[in-house]
Each structure stands twice: as structure tokens, then as C-alpha cells.
Computed example of a mutant assay.
Amino acid sequence: MLKLKQVLQDVGQRQAALAESLKLSSATVAQLLNHGQWPRSLDKAELQARISVFLVDVGANDADIAKAFEEVDLPCANTADPALSQEPSGEDETMLLPKQTLLPTTRKMFSLFRDPFDELQSAQDMWVSPDIRYVREVMYQTARHGGFLAVEGESGAGKSTLRRDLVNRIAENNDPVIIIEPYVLASEDNDTKGKSLKSTHIAESMMAAVAPLERAKSSPEARFAQLHRALKESHAAGYRHCLVIEEAHSLPIPTLKHLKRILELEVGFTKLVSIIMIGQPELGVKLSERNADVREVVQRCERVILAPVEGSRLEEFLKFRFERAGKALAEVIDASGIQAIAARLSQPSRSGGRDKQVSLLYPLAIGNLMTAAMNLAAELGAPVITADVVKGV
């Protein structure tokens, strides 16, 4: 660690202020202060001079400036008299990164001709854990044989990927299933915030998928009778029908209740429509057993939760993604870096009076953190991502 970090604390300046002055990223400055790693792309003497100018401007004395670039060892855990202040700076809080993009210099350094975390191009690019395999199979069986299913997951957990996989799987297997996906752009749970998805809109989507050449009847009652008849005719032709609603957490309560009516469309003992709702955890709140408004839906709807990647499977996940991109994982990140990724994407929480760790190891979050770490490693000239690089992101 450079003594520069203590000098900044003494003059009341944050690392971010120094980074802004030097026109460098906060991660680069963090690596410099915490680990003494100077950016290889910049002249060290020139950078020291620019830092010295900054320190003069913020009121540091000559003695502090003279020793700022000396290195000091971090105290051991049992050291009674720490050399530097151990007050939390607030700069190392766990947070999710925004969308990250591999820089050209990063691609060149790691010889990556394909982004390992880019949008999946085929089903073979999809990593499947036991948890994902279960959710995937439940969705497929619901589409093939009927049922009412709610799939819940955090943003970036892979919900849209599973929806795409379901559509692709049915098409590849030539299964006689018509997938119906209502248009949900700008859908909200009330008309004040946006456009709510109503049962009439869902019925229109179903008619367009099952009988696209028929002209819709004018009255609501006639339209639903027309839909029921069209579904019966389609079923007689050998087809099943699966209604897939993404962003289902934005469904208004009345529409949720109306889905039960759609589920009840039948011929004899055979249900004509199966329903799969896909949404964020707010969907689970709406489907709570304590919500009397949707009790009829709750009693009929199976709920599955898309869990984060298990920490023990993080290396397996990363290895799969990089192999699909034609790169060995060991050439990009070492074991300490993988452990640091797992630690970074965990955050403390308190529930029921007990402290616990909440995992944020979702594919999107992992990809963004890995991409940022690769960019930083390339900037620093580090051959592989280590724990120190991850901590510097």
C-alpha cells in the first residue's frame, strides 16, 4: 500500500477526487493506492508529478508529498497498533455494476474473439445447473401437458433465457404446442404509470396466434366465445396452447384473477390453455397467500424460484462460458480471483433477527463483474485476474 492513501485521508480528500483530477478510473487509482500497481500505459514519473501537483493544490505539506509514494505493509490482524486508520471509507460497499463491455485492448490481451458473456446465440451456449435444469423442465412440461406456473427470479437471473429456450426447444422437437406471447412493452400494473395488460389484450393475442385469419367479434362476450371455439378447433387439430407472459410482476390484480378464467377454458376434461408467468420477485408478493384478492389464483398456481448460481459452481459456470468463447479459464483468472468474485457478489442481510449472506451470483451480475475485471487487468498489464484486481473494480 502507498502512503499516499494516508496522505489523502489527512487532507480530507477521497480517492474519487484524485481519480477525477488524473483523468483515470477509480479502479486504477484503487489499485495504485492499495497495491502500488502503476498503470503500464502511463509514464510513472509523469504520473507522480501530476499526483504531487494535486496534493499541493489540496493543501498537503512538503513532507507528506515527499513520502507519498513510499510503500507500507498492511498490519496483521493481531497487530495492536495499526499504521493506518481503519475507519470504513464507504468506498468498498457491495454493489452491482452497470452493463460492461469488453474493450478492444482487453480482447487483444486475452486473445478473446468472442465475448463470453454476450447474448446467447444457441441452446448450446446455455449453462445448466441442477436448479436451472429443474425450472427448465417444469416450464417444458407445463407447455406440453398443461398447468399454471409462475417463474420468479431477480433481474439477470436468466428468466428471458429460459423463455427463449422453451420456444426453441418446442420448435426443435416439433412439439404440437402453440406458444402465445402477449405484447408487454411498457406494461405496468396500473394505467397511471403506463399501459396495463388486460384480459382483452391477452384474448386478442390468443386469437391472433390460434386463428389469425378470423375477424374479431365486436362485443367482449362474443369475442371470448369466439376464442373458446377457436381453441377447441385448434385442439381438435392436435395442438396444445401455452400462454407465456413475461414481466408478469407488472400484471394488475384484476388481470391475474382473469387468468383463472382463461385456465378454465376446456373441452371435456382437457384444459385448452396452459399458463406460464415469468417475473421478478414482486410477482411472488402479488401471489402471496395473504393476498385475498388472488386466492383463487394462488391455490392453482405452482411457483418456482430461479436461484442464484451456487458459490461452489461459480468456477464451473465461468469455465463453461469461456470454453464456449474458445478460451481456457485458467488463462484469464486464478483461484483467488474466482473466490473474490464470489465474495464481492455477496452482501450481508438481517432477517428474523439473524445476520445472513445474500447471494447476488446471477449470470448477468457475474458477467458484468468479470468483464470489468478483465478490462482492469488489461489496463494494469496483469496477465490474469487475481483477487486484488477484482477488489480494485
Rank of each mutant, 00 (worst) to 15 (best):
D355W: 14
I170H: 03
P98W: 04
P254S: 08
G153D: 00
L33Y: 07
P182C: 07
A66F: 11
K195F: 14
D10C: 03
E93R: 13
H258I: 05
G268H: 06
A211D: 15
V210E: 06
A236E: 15
L272A: 05
S250K: 09
K159F: 02
G146N: 12
R169K: 14
A225T: 09
D92W: 11
V53K: 12
A68Q: 04
G146M: 01
V273L: 09
E46P: 00
G146A: 05
A16V: 14
H145V: 04
A382E: 05
L369W: 02
E70P: 05
I338L: 09
L376N: 02
P254R: 06
D92L: 14
G311V: 03
A77D: 12
A237L: 08
G353S: 12
I305N: 03
K5V: 00
M95L: 10
E282A: 13
A60C: 11
G326Q: 12
L272E: 02
T200N: 14
K198Y: 15
L376D: 04
L84M: 13
A45S: 14
R300K: 13
C301H: 07
R313N: 07
D189T: 02
Q280R: 11
P212H: 06
K99P: 09
S196T: 11
H258V: 04
P98E: 15
D81F: 12
A382R: 05
N173C: 02
A328T: 07
L18M: 04
F54V: 08
L149T: 02
V53Q: 13
Q357F: 09
I262Y: 12
N375Q: 08
Q226Y: 08
I51P: 00
D165T: 03
M206I: 09
N368M: 01
P254E: 10
T192P: 00
K44H: 12
G238E: 09
L149V: 06
V390H: 08
G367C: 07
S26E: 07
K195D: 13
Q339V: 07
K327H: 08
E246D: 15
T94Q: 10
